[in-house]
Deep mutational scan, measured.
Amino acid sequence: MQRVNMIMAESPGLITICLLGYLLSAECTVFLDHENANKILNRPKRYNSGKLEEFVQGNLERECMEEKCSFEEAREVFENTERTTEFWKQYVDGDQCESNPCLNGGSCKDDINSYECWCPFGFEGKNCELDVTCNIKNGRCEQFCKNSADNKVVCSCTEGYRLAENQKSCEPAVPFPCGRVSVSQTSKLTRAETVFPDVDYVNSTEAETILDNITQSTQSFNDFTRVVGGEDAKPGQFPWQVVLNGKVDAFCGGSIVNEKWIVTAAHCVETGVKITVVAGEHNIEETEHTEQKRNVIRIIPHHNYNAAINKYNHDIALLELDEPLVLNSYVTPICIADKEYTNIFLKFGSGYVSGWGRVFHKGRSALVLQYLRVPLVDRATCLRSTKFTIYNNMFCAGFHEGGRDSCQGDSGGPHVTEVEGTSFLTGIISWGEECAMKGKYGIYTKVSRYVNWIKEKTKLT
């Protein structure tokens, strides 16, 4: 034993070699072989497995989906700052455009905790909710729209109204504003409101030439003092309507412009014939205590009207009353817009006519005020429907199939267009061939041609 100890002390290297040989010859039971080890760690190889990531292109799944990435790591994937920024906006807080917040056709661009709407022409605001041009839906104005110097929408209202708090709607500024039905039992019968379409306001006024200088022999019209197929109006439903009495009662109609003036057809009036105007009328054979009678003290036909040349060209006249009318729910003026808007309103496509005229061709006159909704007829169809001249200051309205029309005794009465609950004068009943005849239409004086003249002559002093 002493000898062994001496050998170990003198030859430590020998001992180490012996131990190493023993270990190498022993069977290893701690580690699995290569094949079995792979069965336990069965993990798919990654895209760049075996390579240094710093030297390969980034992978979106590896960089940002398996674990949260930084902007720089995302930049490695896209290799483009702009594309990385677009991805980053949604990656950080989701897609803010998912709810489609942009209105009126706006395009949404996502941002971090926010979004941006790219608005089409005519709109602005956070969600493109603000109209900035009158060309689109009248700028959301209830009545009139004008573009300011910086191309912003400025709404306005006709006389007797003021802008509401929203700067879009119009509200009454006087007790009985024009064009409004205020009798409670008839307010439910107000005709369907007309909503502004998209309009090209630059070209809204037709490029028409008034044929002022045409000389033409007097034409022989049949029954051209021209509501057939209409309905009984309720008291106060058309408070701007008046009836004219002269040699015979209810020979023509008219509309209240203001307390002192009536507008009617020029062919209705004769110099030297006494005319009485009755406002607030409903049943011409009954006294309903809503009527107001006034005498006409002055007749002003349009300066281009000449019955000797043509009885229905420039067929418009103004009547001055001896005493002002007292405005109330049964006696209310009709609204008159400017030339541009009167023309736009007419193009809405349908209007209402009213009167006490004959209820059928050569038949009896109506006792109760009649009204009828009539569609506008395109000019080409209008011209083809008659052998008589249709001037540019006239328009056609009615039904091709016949059966409904204005008729004798309705002449001078109103053709009105309702705009968001307020009625505007767009025409004056003038003439036609018979009444409600198939293929024939009622012919009306186009008020847009005469609004400046009306307003100039009827100013209240």
Rank of each mutant, 00 (worst) to 15 (best):
Q90M: 11
E285Y: 08
T287N: 13
K455H: 12
L325T: 00
S184Y: 11
G160H: 05
Q219E: 08
T84C: 03
Q241C: 05
G236N: 05
V228E: 11
Y305E: 00
C382E: 02
Y444L: 05
G409R: 11
V359T: 15
H361Q: 06
Q167D: 10
H34N: 14
N283W: 08
C157G: 00
H289P: 15
E456R: 08
A317R: 01
G403W: 15
Q2V: 11
H303C: 04
E285D: 13
H267C: 03
T16H: 14
N310A: 10
P375K: 14
I428S: 01
V377M: 06
N343V: 04
F121V: 13
C252H: 00
S448I: 02
G58H: 05
S184T: 09
R180P: 02
N452A: 12
S350R: 13
N127H: 15
C335K: 00
E116A: 13
F196Y: 13
E420V: 10
E82N: 09
E340H: 12
T386A: 12
K109W: 06
V416S: 07
A37L: 02
T290C: 06
E418K: 08
N245C: 05
M6Q: 09
T186K: 11
V273G: 11
P239F: 01
F395E: 00
I299E: 05
L318C: 03
H415I: 04
V269S: 04
V263S: 02
Q90T: 09
N306D: 09
S255L: 04
E323C: 05
D200Y: 07
K311C: 04
A366C: 06
P375W: 07
T381W: 06
T461I: 09
S411W: 15
V153C: 04
F388G: 08
T186M: 14
S220Q: 11
L163F: 01
M8S: 13
L19V: 08
C252Y: 01
E401K: 13
H400I: 11
T271I: 11
I299D: 03
T276M: 08
Q57N: 01
N203R: 08
E281K: 12
A9M: 08
E323Q: 14
E35V: 10
P44V: 15
C268D: 00
K45T: 03
C335N: 00
Y312S: 04
S25D: 09
D410A: 10
E285W: 10
N304T: 06
S217H: 08
S354V: 14
E86P: 03
S169G: 09
A366P: 14
V326M: 14
A173Y: 10
A250N: 13
M437Q: 11
L14G: 05
N166V: 02
L367D: 12
N151Q: 10
E82S: 08
S385E: 08
R358L: 06
Y47N: 05
Y201D: 11
T389H: 14
T381M: 14
G246F: 05
E286D: 11
L103G: 10
N59V: 03
D110E: 12
G398Q: 05
F123G: 04
I275M: 08
H282S: 11
G413C: 08
N36V: 12
E142S: 13
H267Y: 03
G402F: 15
S184W: 08
A233K: 05
R62G: 02
V359M: 15
Y341I: 06
R404N: 06
N213L: 06
N304V: 04
E67D: 03
N36R: 11
H34E: 08
L367Q: 14
K68F: 04
V416L: 05
E66W: 03
S11P: 10
K51W: 04
C18M: 11
C145N: 01
V277I: 12
E434V: 09
S430V: 14
I454H: 01
N80W: 01
E418D: 15
V419Q: 05
D212L: 07
F78V: 04
E53N: 00
K89A: 12
Y444Q: 01
L32N: 12
K109A: 10
A37I: 03
Y47L: 04
H267R: 06
N258C: 01
G409F: 10
L376R: 05
V183F: 10
K339I: 07
E82D: 15
G357F: 08
L244K: 01
A317L: 03
E98D: 10
K457A: 09
A279Y: 01
G94D: 13
C18Y: 08
H400A: 12
N328K: 02
P333N: 04
P235S: 07
V326D: 13
C335G: 01
G21F: 13
K168A: 10
G254Q: 00
W118I: 15
E340P: 07
N5Q: 12
H361A: 08
G421S: 06
E456Y: 08
L32C: 06
N310F: 04
N283K: 06
N313R: 11
T386I: 09
N127T: 11
V153K: 09
Y115Q: 04
T445F: 03
F123K: 11
R43P: 01
D405P: 13
K457F: 07
V451G: 04
D198A: 12
W88A: 03
G160T: 11
K188S: 14
T81H: 12
